[in-house]
Design a binder for these strands. Structure first.
Lengths: 311, 311
DNA sequence: ATCATTATATGTCTAGGACAATATGATTGT
DNA sequence: ACAATCATATTGTCCTAGACATATAATGAT
């Protein structure tokens, strides 16, 4: 039996902790303390990687590494409030449907989940489906992931299935004379695309023209795209999983890259605690999108008239 | 007017060149040579970032950095064979439809593109659509991107739109008694998901049960997922953009993580030049998938009978 | 109790060295 | 002239170890 061991880059890939962090932790805290291979390079055991992943998860919940490192896996596991979802969240939810859907995911019943979702969509219509089902469910899934009561792959499964249902619904919307042109994307390192799809649903329902460029578009490319596509608004989404501290700098950089007349909107759970930034609109909830769009239209109604005349 | 400047991490994000590479190039070749900010930290100009992106692109075409660095932007641009697509590739293509589609992308006519794709899908059926349209078009787009005749965001746009068309088609397939269970995903750092969707189309058409976990699943999670979902086969896709050298190590690592009875299949243009690896099936073309599946079924027909009896 | 200030914790940057893997070029044999 | 082998150059990634800015916690003052 071969004992699997991992190079520092593998660990970086699998844990999301940079090489710099892994080395400095080793220097400071003595953990992780990998053995060295024939070339003097670090070689991490599966156990260490597993422990690092646990630590990373707890850090996302607000714990600090200094307190976590040095604790055994058992102790770390006990910190995680595994049942925290059912306790507080169940009360907040008016509808049991969401719990049912979550359970389907946990049972890996992908076909059943898809069917249930499509049923909900048909029953509620896209707007209500997004606001009452997808959004709270996504939050719930996110929390479950933080808790460790949901595996990463289960979260991926959820994401993939939900993606399909929503995309189909968006595609079914009638096209027509849409305005304004909104470019939707996420920055590099932001994996989660559901927030973007939710935003797209809402915006498309409100009659905006959505140009979805998918995930992880490099900053400068966002600028290029906005220019080439003559977009009125660039909309970004940040999930809770995205490192908060990087966001302000990122947004300012992007603001500099974009033409001044292009509005920059950001949404997603990741920006909830963010301070205001000049010339950037923060839309923490889906409802804000609707009002923001209405306001934008009022402010730009002149141009619109002009545009229509030209047409 | 604020002159935008970029930190070393921004440049890493935007160019895909690691911090280590950026620093060692500066030491060795004297480029990029960023100015230093008040803290002595590197601060790159837009020009340098642009030049780095060009260099990166040329490197993907096989050029070596030592020869490229030191050349001015103008010289670099002249190296790029901008019209290479239309020259050689047009002849290879029996159908003009693909060129038409490519042109639609280049004109950013997303609505028209989507419509044209759906039309092709309806005309050819999913199998032929994937093999005759999507696959060659993807290759073409990839080459155009390497050439620089296509912006990154245009490639994203293509990817996003094509994604939607294919997903819809896959969802429309009837479910039923499917076998074997195949888990589809890509590893971290692999951005491209179209290859996976093409594979899923083919496999689903052949009656396999596809569990798509989307993009960028960490290695260990692939193992967890395979176990939890009782998958028979794990299928990965590598695009040409994925760093070739990392693939063998990655696959061996994954092979170690997976149970021996689970088959590991890999496909995509990224593995075309790869040497054989023990216990890992390489499927360079979409046709190989069909034969591989047939073979697998023959080899595992006993288990299947057993399974059906249990049911 | 609330706010301002200091101290600790933590991530990210820095420099420059080393080495393994890959690619190129030279030499030799057929 | 062409193919194969070996030497050399190129290039990415790892290494150590130090510094500092920023974020968080702890202290003290109002």
């Amino acid at each position: 039996m071969i004992v699997p061991s991992f190079s520092i880059s593998s660990v970086e890939r699998d844990t999301g902790l940079t090489k710099d962090v892994l080395r400095v932790w080793e220097r400071r805290y003595g953990f992780p303390f990998p053995i060295r291979d024939a070339n003097g390079e670090r070689s991490y055991s599966s156990d260490q990687v597993e422990r690092l992943r646990l630590i990373k998860r707890l850090m996302n919940q607000g714990h600090r590494p200094g307190k976590l490192i040095g604790l055994s896996i058992e102790v770390l596991m006990s910190i995680v409030p595994r049942s925290a979802i059912t306790k507080q969240d169940k009360n907040e939810l008016e509808s049991k449907d969401i719990i049912t859907l979550l359970d389907l995911i946990k049972q890996h019943a992908s076909a059943g989940y898809k069917q249930a979702m499509q049923q909900q969509l048909a029953r509620l219509g896209l707007q209500r489906f997004v606001q009452d089902i997808v959004a709270p469910l996504t939050v719930l899934i996110g929390r479950a992931w933080e808790n460790g009561s949901l595996d990463v792959f289960e979260e991926h499964l959820f994401s993939e299935m939900t993606n399909r249902v929503m995309r189909m619904a968006i595609d079914a919307l009638p096209d027509g004379n849409r305005w304004p042109r909104i470019l939707l994307t996420t920055v590099s390192d932001e994996q989660h695309s559901l927030g973007l799809l939710m935003a797209e649903s809402i915006l498309a329902l409100e009659g905006a023209e959505c140009i979805s460029l998918g995930n992880q578009l490099p900053l400068l490319e966002i600028g290029h795209a906005a220019c080439a596509q003559h977009t009125d608004i660039v909309a970004l989404s940040f999930s809770t999983a995205f490192p908060q501290r990087q966001i302000p700098g990122l947004l300012k950089e992007l603001r500099n890259v974009l033409k001044p007349e292009v509005s920059l909107w950001t949404g997603g759970c990741g920006i909830a605690k963010l301070a205001k930034i000049d010339e950037i609109l923060l839309l923490p909830s889906l409802d804000d999108i609707v009002t923001a769009l209405a306001e934008w239209r009022v402010q730009h109604s002149n141009n619109m008239v002009l545009k229509e005349v030209v047409d």
